[in-house]
Write a protein that binds this DNA or RNA. Structure first.
Lengths: 200, 200
DNA sequence: GCTGCAATCTTGTCAGTGACAAGTTTTGCA
DNA sequence: TGCAAAACTTGTCACTGACAAGATTGCAGC
């Protein structure tokens, strides 16, 4: 083991400059790769450092520790989600974008909803999360009040639960059977149609 | 640190018998406690061994390794879930039971849907999962075909996604605001009502 | 241009962990 | 009774996260 593949520009290049250039981004990118492939538990700060060709303690300068790195990823995720939700036209479309986000950014998505891995009090994280929450509430407010007793808050919870559950099961390969070859977004549109039959 | 609280009957009792009696169950129980409190990433085989008052390598005899322990927990979880789903009368009630299961067995629930922590090919696991899947499909089949174009398979996915999403968000404390003091099961009943308006 | 300071990265180290190997004690059964 | 398997222990290794202290570099202000 040890230095199995110090192939190309890995870490042993003696002419490597002292300063990486954008180590923070490099670490984040590598972390997203690892998490998407094998989950957050497979993440090793030292492994990321090796990938980026820096010393084992370099990541700590940018993220303090493991929780710091994951918190940064979660915050970035909530920011991306807020942006994409804000561009949606209606609630159903917001749901579709929610599912699309989970598929496009599986690593972010996983980490965002793993609070035990995060520094939950972090300012960046809480503000980003609040932004995403606002975007979701806006989408809910846009839906016209339907049948009797349709509480807006409840409708929001229903939409969120449906989208979140679908996305989660999808990422966990629990819907490979039922969904099969079909486009997941298309399937989700049908599900959302079942939930909000009256509105559109 | 080190031996901060070797208080009562922990591990230093010199009269402790060589055989624990039911170490397997003790380790499982301790693991469930830890996971429910701090998530699977906080799990340490050595920590569990300390809790049970046995040597650091004792757990390996029953579970082989970390993945083995978590796989055993997941299999147990699917078994419990299958049992509880089978007792449900209709699809909505099955959903309620799904949510209740997640709240009653949060550790099981988390591990069951964290495939990257499991030995996915394990026989016990796959059979238990199949049992739970059968129970879910049975509940779906029981629902009368509703409005035009109501695909049974799709209805099943919708119900699963809604229940799974609600349960997941609930466990992650993402619904503390919207649900508030209300009984989560009651709230879920309303959500399920929105999804299957026609059937009851 | 030079100087000093802060940001960035390195080296060194420590305790904790999972996994494995090999030995010891106990149980249960022929 | 004796013996094989089950249950557990001791010892060890590579790896990891965290921390401390030092080296290198970029840069702002003079």
């Amino acid at each position: 083991m040890t230095s199995s593949k110090a192939s190309a520009n890995e870490q042993n290049s003696p002419d490597r400059p002292y300063h990486h250039g954008d180590l923070r981004r490099a670490i984040l990118g590598a972390a997203l790769d690892v998490i998407a492939a094998d989950g957050p538990s497979a993440l090793s700060l030292r492994g990321l450092a090796r990938r980026a060709g820096v010393s084992h303690a370099a990541p700590a300068h940018h993220f303090k520790d493991r929780a710091g790195l994951l918190t940064a990823i979660a915050a970035e995720g909530f920011g991306l989600l807020a942006t994409t939700l804000r561009e949606a036209t209606g609630l159903k479309e917001a749901g579709v974008r929610y599912v699309r986000f989970a598929r496009d950014h599986p690593a972010h998505f996983q980490v965002m909803f793993a609070p035990e891995l995060l520094r939950t009090g972090d300012l960046e994280l809480t503000t980003a999360r609040a932004l995403a929450g606002d975007a979701l509430r806006e989408a809910v407010a846009a839906v016209p009040p339907g049948g009797r007793g349709t509480d807006a808050r409840l409708a929001g919870v229903a939409a969120w639960a449906l989208a979140h559950g679908f996305a989660t099961l999808l990422l966990g390969h629990n819907l490979d059977g039922p969904v099969g070859e079909r486009d997941p977004e298309e399937v989700f549109r049908e599900l959302a149609g079942m939930l909000f039959r009256h509105a559109e």
